[in-house]
Design a binder for these strands. Structure first.
Length: 878
RNA sequence: GGGCGGUUAGCUCAGCGGCAGAGCAUCGGCCUUACAAGCCGAGGGUCGCUGGUUCGAAACCAGCACCGCCCACCA
């Protein structure tokens, strides 16, 4: 007789799964055991590196966070159980405009890079009274300290959520994108790009947000349908004649530098090469032909201004037109003098009088004023005596470019900016994108599409404060003018630097901003300049070459699809520019959570669902179940029904675990045909689920495991064998149940880390010497190979079919499935009855059949049964 | 305007050449010795439309419609 197996006494366990208590207890245990710590010494090929998205902490918690971060965690947990050394860091993206705005309001401060640094500055949140006063000006280092202070609170909120939903990150690897190490790496990145000739600064027309007063990059720009109007405005032609252009931006008339039409347009062909004269300002401008003009649009002839849109910039460059910049950095019209070299006019006096009416106005006000003037017949400059505005404005809706965080249309303003040269590397960037595996694969096309259509280099300088500063100074000449062609880039060893505080090599503090001295570059990086280094931030890159070799490129980059053009693209670009490699092998794209009307959840729409109450109500495992039910790349409508199903599954696992592990008996082999047939099915499940996980398809892995657990395991196998399990000869059944549970818990563990580890801890932790299921080996066929295959695996299906037939008969007779059957006559084909023989005892015991006989009927289809006669025992009196 | 994804039961979604599926919801039956947070049953479909390929199409091909997303040059 073998020694008895270890069992639990279910009476000593809580009746229900107490999620909060279990979650708290397991957090403590996981920390104590170091379950999620990675081993820095293990080699690259045993390591699974996750390039975790650092969330923007100044945003609010969102059910979408639970969704996408769970996807990553499920994959990390799977690979950990496969024995890999999982490297799963967590960072916080705290630099950038959202945080700046929050800090400005919270402390009522503004950053002024010229303000003196106050090393001991401590501020309290601004009171209502203080907020009415002018904001306090603080230095950039002070401003960064305030940002750090505030974002720390936000980071705690995120950290709580991450722990609560059970992210298996190694918290010793925590970072934030503004911390000294990230600043250091971002500046090293700049220096490397500078040395390789991949960055340049240039004064050129750049997309500019007039509210934030900073340049923005192509990736941060979005088109929004905006109402406007075509204004038909008559221009004169020097030497006689006139034509009518159509414009949506009449306020730019003073900035007009040329006129153009399509070369094949017969209406205007005679004008090419002549000189037009603008109305109101009497500016002579050339008329040229351009293929870029659409003859169908407007009047087919248009004015080129500096700058109305991106095409104006193209024409300005190609035709080498003069610069007449009238929109200032604040979006208002600057003062200009007609009759000067820059602003010639055939009638400077009239031009200046008219311009005086729009100077200092915003774009909208200037537009209104100009249109008024154009309506006035006395402003006629074509000699016809009619007003230049030849028709009432025709309202249209057209696409206008906005900064994604901005409220007013972008302007093209000529400013000096730093760029990363990317346009000449499209081929390489496309090639590397094709080497990376995208999940789902069609997301690759978003990357291709973006890369192919890229039309300006990456503008990386921002005229903001809370960001990583450029490690750059410029020499000042004898007239205190900066020499932009010879920037002084900080030495790697001195980084991170703040050029507004630190000194360039060879200069003294007294030479700052003095003729013959130096001046600091005041700009900071685009936040993506740092975020695009997350794989290198985690690996250490040049700061830790050994570690970098073991952690880079990463295995997976999880992210959502709307930032393929920013985060994915820039990260690929950086890895290529620095090391001619891919930053990661796989990109896994989570979809969005949509509200029930299939609209994206967003703060501005007010349809955001916050996660905490869901975790309370449905448990963390239940919420993870919901998240893991959605396939990669698929947008999913938020549906609480799925959370309920998750919670039910958690409860069922808990109860099934209690029942199975309470069945006492000796150690015994699995040697009964039905048990072996069950194990055979289990083997097939393990094969399928493993294959799905290897393809990052956690959703199908979960679905498969769940349906097996619920249908094959609890409703079928467990029901079929539980009577035998209580017999003296029940050893094989108990062993089969325990093996089934031991395998299923592990297949569920990546998705349901709490309930599985709790049930695991009762018996299996000791039995297998693995204190946590999350370090237990993933189930394999080798592990199941000691159990012999059944002689005929179909006996399982035959048992299921037979039991279902009896159950149906009971249901049709209005009899409880638990009611005994005193006498049953069961018919089936001779072959089916032969198959039934090995499982007959379990089936009839499960159906509570007391006496039965079998009738052979070869007219019945194989594998089907018929109840010919049934006498049910009397119900038990209450 | 270009590209991508979707359209399957009342709802949320699987299925992607071989009998149209799951969960929820609905209806009926059961307080059965693990679990009523449960169990046993039942009903419910022109697989968006039109054509084609095929012995066979929800699936493959072509076209169309609608929904959503990404991108595009604001005259």
């Amino acid at each position: 007789m073998s020694a008895p197996i270890k069992v639990i006494d279910p009476e000593t366990l809580p009746k229900h799964f107490e999620a909060r208590e279990v979650e708290a207890r397991l957090h403590e245990r996981w920390d104590r055991l170091g379950v999620y710590a990675h081993d820095p010494a293990r080699p690259r090929d045993e390591t699974f590196v996750v390039d975790t998205p650092p969330p923007t902490v100044s945003g609010s918690l969102h059910v979408g966070h639970v969704f996408s971060y769970t996807h990553t965690d499920v994959l990390a947990r799977y690979h950990r159980m496969r024995g890999q050394n999982v490297f799963y860091p967590m960072g916080w993206d705290d630099n950038g405009l959202p945080t700046e705005r929050r800090v400005q309001n919270h402390f009522h401060v503004r950053c002024d890079p010229r303000a003196p640094h106050e090393p001991d500055l401590k501020l309290a949140p601004a009171t209502a009274a203080e907020a009415k006063q002018p904001p306090r000006l603080v230095s950039r280092p002070n401003f960064i300290d305030l940002c750090l202070e505030l974002t720390h609170q936000d980071e705690e909120a995120f950290k709580n959520l991450w722990r609560r939903i059970g992210l298996s990150v190694d918290w010793s690897l925590e970072y934030s994108t503004i911390d000294p190490r990230c600043r250091h790496l971002a500046q090293l990145s700049f220096r490397d790009l500078f040395e390789k000739g991949h960055v340049y600064s240039v004064e050129a027309p750049t997309m500019w947000d007039v509210d934030f007063q900073t340049a923005v990059a192509q990736a941060e720009v979005e088109d929004r349908p905006t109402r406007g109007a075509f204004h038909d405005v008559a221009f004169g032609v020097e030497g006689g004649g006139e034509f009518t252009i159509a414009t949506t931006r009449p306020e730019l008339l003073p900035a007009c530098v040329a006129v153009t039409a399509h070369p094949s347009d017969a209406r205007y062909r005679h004008l090419f090469g002549k000189t037009a004269r603008t109305p109101l300002f009497h500016v002579p401008v050339p008329i040229f032909a351009s293929e870029l003009v659409d003859p169908e649009k407007g009047t087919g002839i248009l004015m080129v201004c500096t700058f109305g849109d991106a095409t104006d910039v193209v024409w300005w460059r190609e035709q080498k037109l003069p610069l007449r910049q009238i929109i200032g950095r604040d979006g208002r019209l600057v003062a200009v003098q007609f009759g000067s070299d820059a602003f010639p006019s055939r009638d400077p006096e009239a031009a200046n009088t008219r311009y005086a009416q729009i100077a200092r106005k915003g774009v909208g006000g200037a537009r209104q004023a100009i249109v008024e003037m154009l309506r006035d017949a006395t402003t006629d400059s074509t000699g016809t005596g009619t007003a230049p505005l030849r028709a009432e404005p025709k309202p249209i809706e057209h696409a206008v470019k906005y900064f994604e965080k901005g409220d007013r249309p972008l302007e093209f303003i000529s400013t000096r900016q730093w760029f990363v040269r990317l346009l000449d590397k499209k081929e390489q960037l496309l090639a590397i994108g094709d080497e990376i595996r995208w999940h789902p694969d069609f997301m690759r096309l978003r990357y291709r599409n973006w890369t192919e259509n890229l039309n300006v280099d990456w503008c990386v300088s921002r005229q903001r404060y809370f960001g990583v500063p450029f490690p750059v100074w410029y020499p000042l000449d004898a007239d205190a003018q900066p020499d932009y062609d010879h920037p002084i880039v900080a030495a790697a060893a001195t980084m991170p630097v703040d050029p507004t505080v630190d000194l360039p090599p060879g200069y003294g503090a007294d030479q700052r901003d003095q003729a013959g001295g130096f001046t600091a570059e005041a700009d900071v990086y685009d936040t993506w300049f740092t975020s695009s280094l997350t794989p290198q931030i985690a690996s250490g890159w040049v700061l830790d070459p050994n570690r970098h070799a073991r952690r880079f490129p990463a295995d997976i980059r999880p992210q959502s699809h709307e930032i393929i053009r920013t985060w994915a693209f820039y990260t690929i670009a950086k890895a290529w520019l620095h090391e001619h490699t891919m930053p990661w092998k796989h990109v896994v794209i989570s979809g969005w959570i949509l509200d029930p009307d299939r609209k994206k959840m967003s703060k501005s729409k007010g349809n955001v669902v916050t996660p905490m109450h869901l975790l309370d109500e449905y448990t963390s495992d239940g919420c993870r179940y919901w998240a893991a039910s959605a396939r990669l790349g698929t947008d999913t409508a938020f549906d609480e029904k799925v959370l309920k199903v998750g919670k039910r599954l958690v409860t069922k696992l808990y109860n099934a675990g209690k029942f199975v592990l309470a069945q006492a008996g000796p150690h015994a082999p699995i040697d009964v045909e039905l048990d072996r047939a069950f194990v055979e099915r289990l083997r097939q499940l393990v094969t399928r689920v493993t294959k799905a996980f290897d393809a990052f398809d956690y959703a199908h892995a979960l679905q498969d495991t769940e349906s097996f657990f619920w249908h094959d395991f609890t409703d079928t196998y467990l029901e079929l064998v539980k009577h035998r399990a209580r017999d003296d000869a029940g050893g094989s059944a108990i062993a089969g149940l325990r093996l089934g549970l031991r395998v299923l818990l592990r297949l569920f563990a990546p998705v349901l880390p709490y309930v599985t580890d709790e049930v695991w801890s009762w018996v299996f932790a000791e039995e297998t010497d693995t204190p946590s299921i999350h370090r237990a080996p993933w189930p394999t066929l080798e592990e199941l190979s000691t159990i012999a295959a059944p002689a005929d695996a179909t006996c399982f299906d035959v048992a299921v079919a037979c039991l279902a037939t009896i159950n149906k008969a009971k249901s049709e007779a209005g009899v409880s499935p638990g009611r005994g059957v005193a006498q049953l006559t069961l018919a089936a084909s001779s072959e089916t009855l032969r198959q039934l023989a090995t499982v007959e005892r379990d089936v009839l015991a499960s159906a509570r059949v007391e006496r039965h006989d079998l009738a052979t009927d070869d007219a019945l289809a194989a594998g089907t049964f018929e109840v010919r006669k049934a006498e049910y025992v009397a119900p038990v009196e209450a």
